[in-house]
Design a protein around this nucleic acid. Structure first.
Lengths: 208, 208
DNA sequence: GTCTATAGATAGATAGAC
DNA sequence: GTCTATCTATCTATAGAC
């Protein structure tokens, strides 16, 4: 899917993407005008149409790129291992990845309703793929008894909400290091699925 | 704080509120025009200004009313009891209350950035009050050893994200009853804070 | 590839009649 | 309390010059 027409001029599609991410995150897609976008990269509004068909395509591009990169990053991270280990790996991966991309995450979760039907379908499909990764780990743990999962679908949705919620309060340079935040969330989620974790160092001890 | 000028005509502030909630939830505050709002209640746009100073005041009204009612509902529900019992009560209260008000919850979480500074300050203060309820329960449980809380602030934010996340997937008439959903979330959250819960009936058994 | 100019639609909000 | 009419500003998107 061609998402831009390509360019070698001084403003680039990449620059527009970067600035739109910030503008959409701060003000919301509907509240940001093409003139604002253009001004942020130092051109007139009409120049934007050299790079994107219209405003909607910028949004689709941002969300699609975010989800595709997220899925690729997990592909590079995943291992064959026990369900509890895989769950911990997923938790730490999700927090580490999302905490570094606050604008991408914010826009991806807030602007789903700003997508027109075609784009919505594309993004929803990618989101379901990501949800399925966690759901499969939980299902495997439920099947072999290594996790205590009441309902894999509900648990997957609940865990994803909890993990992604980090972005609502985390501010770089705050009281807690990113590693410490990973530890705290890993301990809470693992315990919620029946894995016993000590409270001192969050080391996995045993499971029910 | 006077939020409307009052009326005894056939369109009322209450009707505008109700319709705006749906419109804002579906389309986003910025994407909804005063003309759309007016049309939804069957009047011309200028008539809306009899009930609200401007568009922004409608949003502030909706969010403020939601948070105030939520806090009042908890005041009516809360009891003096042990931290684990209070935590379970809070979990079930939050899910029960939020699952019945999907539009209020959605708008309250999505449109914070659409608030101008004064309104934002008001709503943020109410939100912090609600967060503090859960944080206090966790702090009490951490102090008396009845809960295994790594970090009360982080745990409170994580639990609230998880619980409120129900609204992203729950649809009335789906596979699970509201009671069952309460049970599943209660079990997950209690376990995440070190309370041992059986997986069969989610009955509280003991705590670490 | 970027500009100016502009089309055509729509926005929030107000004035004044009834 | 609601209407019509309108002000002023802004919007997305396009046409055509350079």
């Amino acid at each position: 899917m061609a998402r831009s027409v390509g360019s070698d001029g001084k403003i680039t599609a990449a620059e527009i993407r970067k600035n739109c991410l910030v503008l959409f995150a701060r003000n919301g897609y509907a509240a940001v005008s093409m003139r604002q976008i253009a001004q942020s990269v130092g051109v007139q509004a009409s120049a934007i149409y050299q790079y994107f068909e219209n405003k909607q395509q910028i949004l689709v591009d941002l969300l699609q790129t975010h989800m595709e990169k997220l899925l690729e990053a997990w592909d590079a991270e995943m291992c064959r291992e026990s369900a509890p280990k895989a769950l911990e790996r997923f938790i730490r991966f999700h927090i580490r990845y999302h905490i570094k991309k606050p604008d991408e995450v914010f826009v991806s979760y807030m602007e789903l309703r700003s997508l027109e039907p075609e784009g919505f379908k594309t993004i929803e499909s990618l989101r379901r793929k990501y949800e399925q990764i966690l759901k499969s780990i939980l299902e495997e743990g439920a099947a072999d008894g290594s996790l205590n999962v009441d309902d894999p679908h509900v648990a997957a949705m609940a865990i994803l909400s909890m993990l992604t919620g980090v972005n609502t309060w985390y501010r770089s340079g705050g009281r807690l290091s990113q590693d410490r935040i990973e530890d705290i969330y890993a301990a809470m989620v693992l315990r919620s699925q029946g894995v016993m974790v000590s409270s001192e160092n969050n080391e996995e001890l045993a499971h029910v």
